[in-house]
Design a binder for these strands. Structure first.
Lengths: 169, 169
DNA sequence: TATTGTTATACTCTATAACTATA
DNA sequence: TATAGTTATAGAGTATAACAATA
């Protein structure tokens, strides 16, 4: 016991709880909307959106996708498999490096994103931004952007070189 | 198709993505810390903390707990069952209303929260507040607090009176 | 040997629906 | 009839470890 450091001051607690609750509710709502509009989970949407909107080529390596979406490798394989089966992405071995797999959005994938996007944006505008001014949004974006940078810099899941000995106690 | 309303402006997109990523990473980290420190999920911690820190009596009705923790009833029953089995809470029928079940933290539950709390606060301070000034925290708390109020006012999961007809398409 | 990705497997969590009991 | 809670069940998602293949 490191002698009970003062947990968090009131403002910090408020910010933390508000963040978690808001993000939780928002994600819940968004998942629901995406599921109804396109039978997609949030993660699947993220993958499609990243490929379709971010990548110029519409394709990326598995590893690079995993880096951007937090997942474990196997989790990404699972999700990519689901998208593949629905014809929303294709997977093919890279010609450069035969170990790599290139995931590419299909036209069907792009269409689906396009179909789902307006409702998605709508949910967010309504729930998240419904009570905020432009200044609020700017402040939020600024502060959270800095937190994100900070978090990305901090090793989030790397501190795990040694396998084994990790259960219950 | 409602004729493609402009999705979201750049600032909104930035705030939205930052929020989701920050909350996701934070929750991931916090889950891990809680799991290691006390073999608790975030939800379980929330339940214990709510009972131990918020409720003066250390007890609450199932329904009231469910309202505060978003879950479905059955999900709460499941979690309460887990906590009960570990001796962290007890469940007993209310004397007022025999339909109700009163969940109460045990001393073991309080001890566990106390044991886990410092590390929990530590993670948050480090990850979430590590790059922020007091002003940032205040701004965050203010804006997100308002969003929370707004979201709570908006019916999040109520619009679901009719059962049935809800699958795939 | 290190990296990329898949597979097998086990487990946690969540939701729905059916059900019981009290108000 | 409405409310409180449980149970059964099914499904989605995630993580770990073992594995195969290429660099």
């Amino acid at each position: 016991m490191p002698d009970t450091p003062p947990p968090l001051d009131a403002a910090q607690l408020g910010a933390y709880f508000a963040l978690m609750e808001v993000a939780g509710l928002l994600r819940h709502a968004v998942e629901q909307q995406l599921r109804e509009a396109g039978d997609l989970s949030y993660v699947q949407f993220q993958l499609l959106a990243r490929l379709g909107l971010d990548s110029p080529s519409g394709s990326e390596r598995m590893t690079d996708l995993a880096d951007g979406v937090v997942y474990s490798r196997s989790g990404l394989t699972y999700q990519a498999g689901l998208l593949d089966r629905r014809g929303l992405v294709t997977r093919s071995p890279s010609t450069d490096d035969e170990r790599s797999v290139i995931v590419a959005v299909t036209q069907a994938g792009r269409d689906l994103v396009a179909r789902v996007l307006p409702g998605h944006a709508d949910s967010i505008r309504r729930l998240l931004f419904g009570a905020l001014t432009d200044d609020d949004v700017a402040a939020l974006s600024d502060v959270l952007g800095r937190v994100r940078e900070h978090m990305r810099a901090t090793p989030p899941r790397s501190a795990r070189p040694r396998a084994g000995r990790n259960r219950t106690a």
